[in-house]
Amino acid sequence: MCFTGYGNIAAGAARALPVLTAMLGLAVMAAAVGEIDSDRAKVFAIAYVGVRVLSDRAWRGRSAIVVDWPVAQLGAGVVPWIVSLWIDGPWRYDLRAIGLGIDLFVSFTFDRERMTRSIAERQARAAGRRPGPHAISIARLDEAHFGERLGLFMIIVLGEGVLMVTQAMSDLEVWNRTGYGTVIGSLVLLAGLWALMLRRGYGGVPMLGESAPPRVMLFLHCVVAGVLAALASGMGELVESVPHAHPETSTRWLVCAAVAAIGLVGAGAAIAGNGWLWGLRPLAPALLIPALAVLLDPGVAGLVWLLVLAVALQLVATRAKATRQ
């Protein structure tokens, strides 16, 4: 997100080397996350800290304050990550969660004027000047381009779900009717979520309008992306459970809660943009049908198709508004 914002704001003036170096750091994180409970946890943290420091340095020398995503220039949330390098056991993960919490809190609650003054004073001291009013500009996101970038990122996360489903299907020893129904239903569900988030939404957030403030869009995008990543994992586990006909209880709760959470975010965005009467229409299927799927335990294929029904009814409930737009 930090470097997407950098490319968006700097545009043609963006330097390639920081972006390519950040990609290397992110590749190390991606390679290490599979063994995050081993020694690779330290490698993951070092790469994360390095990318965050690089994000801050990319803005050095530019008299601009990134008000829409201040984490790009503020590093308070990195401190717990650095401390975690010397901590073993579960506490290191708690420290990292605290660091992420600090970053999100700062990003969505910061005082713009205070931040501008603080960074101006820091830059003045670094340049050997006396702190005071200097030429500081406000860097704002190109919202149309940034929304398109966020939507593309969500497509990538949906693609991870497709990958999970197809890989789990390839591992099945026997392909039977239940397997076909589960796999086809899973792909239809992911396609329905794509329509809900991108055809009925903005920036990958279902039912969000283009006029939403950037900080609201970014916050909801973070929530939906995290939920969707969890759902992608659960979809693979659903296909793996085909030989047993019924998924494990934890998997059933995971996928149902994820679909309900995405629908809840969409309903909230619809209420904010179009009022309570409109927003409550997709809320009922978003919550009631996943709850029914949890309680009934209709088997692995039945569970998937109930979730497809929940997403389909949300699309139908918002179709009239989309047509008018």
Rank of each mutant, 00 (worst) to 15 (best):
S107D: 10
A168P: 00
E173Y: 08
P213V: 07
G201R: 02
V106S: 06
A291N: 06
P70H: 07
G266T: 07
H244N: 15
A120R: 12
W276D: 08
W253P: 05
R130A: 13
V308Y: 00
N274V: 10
G61M: 10
E248A: 15
G302K: 09
M23W: 04
G159A: 13
I155A: 13
V174F: 09
A260P: 02
D111P: 03
Y93V: 10
L150C: 10
P285S: 08
G273E: 11
L287V: 14
T182K: 05
G5E: 05
A168I: 09
G185D: 05
S118I: 15
A45W: 02
Q325W: 14
L280K: 05
V19W: 02
V19P: 02
D297A: 14
D94C: 13
A45Q: 01
P290G: 05
L24A: 13
Y48V: 07
A291G: 08
A27D: 00
D88F: 14
V239Q: 04
Q73K: 12
A168G: 06
G99F: 04
H246L: 08
R92T: 11
I289H: 02
I136E: 09
A127K: 15
L172E: 11
L95I: 11
V71R: 02
T182C: 06
P206C: 06
G236L: 03
A225Q: 06
R324P: 01
P206G: 01
